[in-house]
Simulated assay, not measured.
Amino acid sequence: MNRHRPSASPDWVERAESIEGVERIEAFFHGKAYAMHRHDTYAIGRTLAGVQSFNYRRGQCNSLPGHTLVLHPDEPHDGQAGTGEGFQYRMIYVQPSLFQDVLGGRTLPFLEGGVTTDPRLSAATGALLQQMSYTLEPLEQNDALTELIHALADVTGTAKLRPTGDYRAARLARDFLHAHSTEAVALEALEGATGRDRWSLSRDFRQFYGTSPYRYLTMRRLDTVRRLLLAGTSLSQAAAAAGFADQPHMTRHFSKAFGMTPGQWLRVARG
């Protein structure tokens, strides 16, 4: 776990150690926290203090202390304080593939509006949104995630929906993209690996993993960039190692995904 509290700013972020596809943070921000961005994970959290405001699906949302947030993968959003006092929150970022391990090919749950006071989701997120000093055991995290995913499917009505896409093809595509994440993946190669035409595959992939194959590939490259930056690799070297054409290309994608430049992110992440 680390905390970063710059002397020139009261804003801070704590990060717990990531465990099997789940990132956990607690943060406090005054004013603007993040520019408009989108990532390919679920962002599920709770406001602890203040008013947490964000633009999401063509509207502004305000989360108050005790409210639960569930932002769907690949949906653009930003983040800022709704009052001058700032806001504090905890958040987990969960890969949709972990949802599919539980859902087994059902459509990903979508919570309309992004904010809820439903007691089922409040209870189901409790174990995962503990303070950062608490270390979740892998089995404990798995049990808590399973409970949360089932609760979210029930609350949103997803549990009653029958999938229409080809889950096997989408999963094969995901495995192929992981194996070739630093390469320029050709559409023909993806079609050959899955036995599915590119248009049907793109639709299937978005249904089961919440984003397009190209966006998924880009986010895996950005995961590599973040890991390398924390290890002290330069921006240009990290961009090349992750498979980006150059540093500006990587920086554009990074800002779109995380709402801040790589340099800004690194200053916050290095506590």
Score class of each variant (00 low, 15 high):
7 S>G: 10
8 A>R: 08
8 A>N: 13
9 S>H: 10
11 D>C: 09
13 V>N: 02
13 V>P: 00
13 V>H: 02
16 A>I: 02
21 G>T: 08
21 G>K: 09
21 G>Y: 08
22 V>Y: 06
22 V>Q: 08
24 R>E: 02
24 R>N: 07
25 I>V: 15
29 F>I: 01
34 Y>I: 02
38 R>K: 12
39 H>Q: 10
40 D>A: 11
41 T>R: 14
41 T>K: 12
43 A>R: 07
47 T>N: 08
51 V>P: 00
52 Q>I: 00
53 S>A: 13
55 N>R: 14
60 Q>G: 00
60 Q>H: 06
60 Q>C: 04
60 Q>N: 09
64 L>A: 10
65 P>L: 07
66 G>C: 04
71 L>E: 05
72 H>S: 12
72 H>I: 00
72 H>T: 12
72 H>A: 12
74 D>A: 15
74 D>F: 09
79 G>Q: 09
81 A>T: 03
81 A>D: 07
82 G>K: 09
85 E>A: 13
85 E>N: 13
89 Y>T: 07
92 I>D: 05
92 I>G: 03
95 Q>T: 06
95 Q>P: 00
95 Q>K: 15
97 S>V: 14
98 L>Q: 07
98 L>V: 00
100 Q>S: 07
104 G>L: 12
105 G>M: 05
111 L>R: 10
112 E>I: 03
113 G>L: 03
114 G>C: 04
121 L>R: 13
121 L>F: 11
121 L>H: 11
122 S>M: 13
124 A>R: 08
124 A>N: 11
124 A>Q: 10
125 T>K: 12
126 G>I: 01
129 L>K: 05
130 Q>K: 14
131 Q>G: 10
134 Y>K: 14
135 T>G: 02
137 E>Y: 06
142 N>W: 09
143 D>K: 13
143 D>E: 14
144 A>S: 08
145 L>N: 04
145 L>R: 07
146 T>N: 12
150 H>I: 12
153 A>M: 08
153 A>I: 03
155 V>A: 11
159 A>S: 14
160 K>I: 01
160 K>M: 09
162 R>N: 13
162 R>D: 12
163 P>F: 07
166 D>L: 01
166 D>I: 00
166 D>C: 06
167 Y>L: 05
169 A>S: 09
173 A>M: 03
183 E>P: 00
185 V>G: 10
186 A>V: 00
190 L>M: 06
191 E>W: 01
191 E>V: 06
193 A>N: 08
193 A>C: 05
195 G>Y: 05
195 G>D: 05
195 G>K: 08
196 R>Q: 06
199 W>M: 11
200 S>C: 02
201 L>M: 04
203 R>W: 04
209 Y>L: 12
212 S>H: 10
213 P>V: 09
214 Y>V: 13
216 Y>S: 15
217 L>C: 06
218 T>G: 05
219 M>R: 14
220 R>Y: 06
221 R>S: 08
222 L>Y: 07
224 T>W: 08
224 T>Q: 15
226 R>Q: 15
228 L>F: 03
230 L>M: 13
231 A>R: 15
235 L>P: 00
236 S>A: 15
238 A>C: 06
239 A>V: 04
240 A>W: 03
242 A>M: 08
244 F>L: 06
245 A>N: 08
246 D>T: 02
247 Q>Y: 03
247 Q>M: 10
249 H>S: 12
254 F>W: 05
255 S>N: 13
258 F>S: 05
261 T>C: 05
263 G>F: 00
265 W>C: 02
265 W>R: 12
269 A>V: 04
271 G>Q: 10
